[in-house]
């Protein structure tokens, strides 16, 4: 029995010791996800807390296929999408044929690009863009999967992703310019 399996069976039996082991092991990485999908640390903590309760309640349903962390990650994401449902709907209403795909989205890894700043930048995006960007780019879901998750069309999903990238790049370039001036 591997470590994970032991922890899982312990959690299924409702033993607090194993719950804590699971939490201890995976909460940081899941918190990282939650922070990306929410706008404030408070919201991220709420999402994480609710997600862990769901994880413990439903861990029986984890079928061993795929990594445990991926399964839990999805629960965290779903929880965040649920929390921001309204905002997502409001920011994803417009459908546009996606713009020039050859647009230059290259960016240098400046030393001042801290986690906090990068997070702040995605928090500043409209909620819909933020979710699409996270799901497509960082989690690596396909457009089809994302469109299904966010309940929008493929075109909307694609156009929002391009807009999100454009905005992010603009912000970074702007900030770099400011740094150069100062």
């Amino acid at each position: 029995m591997s470590n994970d399996e032991q922890i899982i069976s312990g959690c299924i039996n409702g033993e607090e010791k194993y719950r804590y082991m699971l939490y201890k092991q995976y909460s940081p990485i899941l918190y990282g996800t939650a922070l990306r999908y929410t706008n404030t640390e408070d919201d991220a903590q709420d999402v994480l807390q609710e997600a862990f309760i769901l994880i413990f309640d439903n861990i029986k349903q984890y079928n061993g296929k795929g990594k445990l962390v991926a399964w839990m990650n999805k629960i965290v994401i779903n929880q965040a999408l649920k929390l921001y449902q309204k905002q997502i709907k409001n920011t994803l209403v417009d459908y546009e044929e996606y713009e020039n795909t050859l647009i230059d989205n290259s960016v240098a890894e400046y030393d001042w690009l801290s986690y906090q700043l990068l997070l702040d930048l995605i928090h500043q995006l409209p909620t819909g863009y933020q979710m699409v960007f996270n799901l497509c780019e960082i989690e690596g879901y396909s457009y089809e999967e994302v469109a299904k998750m966010l309940n929008c069309s493929l075109g909307t999903c694609r156009s929002q992703l391009f807009k999100a990238k454009k905005k992010l790049k603009q912000k970074i370039v702007e900030l770099q310019k400011q740094k150069e001036i100062l």
Partner: peptide
């Protein structure tokens, strides 16, 4: 300084190991 072709890649790389301890 590394230059990324796409800003998405930069984010993916940066956040791959991002695991802050929650309070």
């Amino acid at each position: 300084m590394k230059t990324y072709k796409d800003i998405g890649e930069l984010y993916k790389d940066k956040f791959a190991g991002y695991a802050p301890t929650p309070p």
